[in-house]
Simulated scan of single mutants.
Amino acid sequence: MTTPDSSFFRVERDGPVALVVMNRPDKANSMTPDFWTDLPRIMDALGRDESVRCAILAGEGRHFTGGMDLAAFASLAGLFQKEPGRAAYAMRDLILALQDAFTALERARFPVVAAIHGACLGGGIDMITACDLRIASADASFAVEEIHIGMAADVGTLQRLPKLIAPAVAAELAYSGRRFSADEARSIGLVSAVHEDREALMAAARDMAHSIAQKSPLAIAGIKRNLAYARDHSVADGLDYIATWNAGMLRPGELMAAVQAKMAKQQATFADLLVGQKLG
């Protein structure tokens, strides 16, 4: 697989696991314009590679990410000098494009593990809430910082965070913009584990990703799709959806292979998914 060139990200492979690293450590991995275009391109490219079964999202340097590069806002100054209706239309289009960069994480057929160390601020919260799993190092700190620059978070935090933690807690964090620690993030359910340092964090992320990669990719894709569906629909609708999914996707051969491997105390092996099929 050839991943798109990126001035912001470094992409590495460890067998079926892809490591996607924000690589702007001198600027705390703050999100430049290249970030927003490169992230969905990379995720889409990984999704077209049948051998990718899980991804880890991490940051190089002292911090996971400081959020949006505020210099990027300067480029919008001219937009607000335009005719108001057209400026508003263009601004909405831009926001939708930024939202889609993070939705690419949610849209991926495989789970994405966010491995968070140091600061995870502003857009970093939008990003990790679009990931499937979140773990942190003990030095991690978090904040929904947009309120401090006079705006409501608009690329995912206000929509996804209340589905991950108690809505009242999400509201308090968004209204106050206060920093909170890795331990608090674990206590409210934003992250599932806290590790001693970045080295231990990355080791745990790799272990988690490889454990997922050993499972049936068809079952993993089904779990991811159905968790997202259940989040946005009623229990009754979710039950109907999983019944239809398994009626079509449950494969007797994979079930038998998994059961036999379990009885033999061995690791079952599963074929990659077929992806990226084209006509002609």
Rank of each mutant, 00 (worst) to 15 (best):
Q214D: 14
L105Y: 06
F180M: 11
H210F: 00
S141H: 12
I116Y: 03
H117M: 05
A166N: 15
E196A: 14
D126G: 01
C131W: 06
A170L: 08
P167F: 06
L173W: 04
V155N: 10
R198W: 01
S216Y: 05
A219C: 01
A171S: 13
M127F: 04
E172T: 07
E106W: 01
Y175W: 12
M202T: 00
A114F: 02
L173K: 02
A193P: 02
G123T: 11
A138W: 07
F180N: 02
S176E: 14
S211I: 00
I165R: 06
L161K: 00
H148D: 05
A168L: 05
A221H: 12
A200H: 14
S141V: 15
H210S: 13
V169Y: 09
V169Q: 13
Y175I: 13
A152R: 14
A174Q: 06
L190Q: 07
I147Q: 00
H117P: 06
T103P: 11
A108L: 12
I135K: 00
P167T: 06
R186L: 15
S181V: 11
G156R: 01
D197N: 15
V169N: 01
A115R: 01
A136H: 09
T157N: 08
G123H: 09
L173Y: 02
P111G: 08
T157K: 03
H117A: 14
